[in-house]
Design a binder for these strands. Structure first.
Lengths: 150, 150
DNA sequence: CTTAATAGTTAATTTACTTAACTATAAGCT
DNA sequence: AGCTTATAGTTAAGTAAATTAACTATTAAG
C-alpha cells in the first residue's frame, strides 16, 4: 500500500519533531518554574495534573509513567510547600484525594501563563489555517495514543 | 483579534497532547531499549543523534539540554559497549568526532524499527488526509521551535 | 474471620545529573 | 614571539532523582 510509506514518513517526522520541540518547551517551563518558584518540571506536571482533575497518587504515577513512591515523594514536597492538600476519602479510607491550594492555582497560572506567552510569541507568525491544522493533529495524536484505548 | 483565542486554544491542546503522547512513545522505546539491549532512553537518544549527524559532545549537550559532562559520561558508556567510536579532529585537536559502529546501526534499527511498528499499529486507523495533517503540523512545529531561528 | 488485594507511604539503594576543577589545544593580543 | 583568554572535552565529587522492596492501613473475597 502507498499508505504504508506515508505512515512511515509521518512517524519519522514525529521523531524528528517532538523530541526537540518538547525539549525546548520543557526547557522554557523548567526555566520559569525553577527561576521564579523553585519548582522542578515534574513537580509542575504533577501540580498541573491535580489541577486538571487527576486526584490520586496511583493515577498520577500511571499518567506520568513513573513509580508511585516517586509521585508520593513529589506530592509530599508539594504539601510541604503549601501547594497541595491531602484528604482521605470518607467512603474508602485507603484513597487520598489530592487538591491544589489557592496559592498553587496562582503559581500555576503564573508559570503556565509565562510559557503560554513565550509559545504564543514563537507561534505568532502562524495563520488561522495553520493553527487549525496543528489543533487537528494534536486531537488525532491524543486519541491515537490514549492509554484508555488499549 | 480572533486569532488570539485560536492561538491560545492551540497551545492548550499542545499541552494536553504532547506530554502524555510523548510519555507513551518514550515508554515504549525505553521498554524496547531496556529489555532488548540494556540501553537507557537517553543513551538511545544520544546514539540516534550521532547517527543523524550530531557528532560532538557539545552539540549533543545543547540538543538534549543536559550538561556536557553528562553527555561525556553517556558517550563513554556507549564507547565501552562498542556502539560509538571517538576520533580526534586532525585540524583542531580539541574536537572529538563521534561515529556509530556497525553494530550500533543494527541495534538502532532494531529498537527504532520495533517502536515504528508499534506506532504504525496504533496509527493504522488514520487515513491519508489525517496522516498528511499530522505531517504538516510536525513540519510547522519543527520550524516554529527551531533553536536556529532565535 | 482469615486470606488476598489495593492505595499509599517509608526506607534503602541505585542511577543519573550537576557543578567544579583540570587537561589539552587553539585563538587573540601587545 | 610569548602571555592571556577561550574552547572542547573529561574527570571527580557531590547532589538529586527515581527505583525496588518492605511496610501500614483499609477493603474485598472466599
Amino acid at each position: 500500500m502507498a499508505n504504508d510509506d506515508l505512515l512511515r514518513q509521518t512517524i519519522e517526522k514525529f521523531w524528528d519533531t517532538i523530541p526537540p520541540v518538547w525539549g525546548r518547551v520543557r526547557g522554557n517551563v523548567r526555566c520559569n518554574a525553577t527561576h521564579d518558584f523553585n519548582l522542578t518540571l515534574i513537580q509542575f506536571h504533577i501540580l498541573r495534573h491535580i489541577w486538571h482533575g487527576v486526584r490520586s497518587v496511583g493515577e498520577l504515577a500511571e499518567e506520568q509513567q513513573i513509580s508511585r513512591p516517586a509521585v508520593s515523594q513529589i506530592v509530599q514536597i508539594l504539601v510541604e510547600k503549601g501547594l497541595v492538600i491531602r484528604q482521605t476519602d470518607a467512603h474508602d479510607r485507603r484513597y487520598v484525594h489530592l487538591e491544589i491550594t489557592q496559592s498553587a492555582a496562582e503559581l500555576l497560572e503564573a508559570v503556565y501563563g509565562k510559557n503560554r506567552r513565550w509559545m504564543a510569541e514563537k507561534m505568532a507568525s502562524l495563520n488561522e489555517e495553520q493553527l487549525k491544522t496543528i489543533q487537528a493533529a494534536m486531537e488525532m495524536l491524543k486519541k491515537t495514543f490514549d492509554p484508555a484505548a488499549d
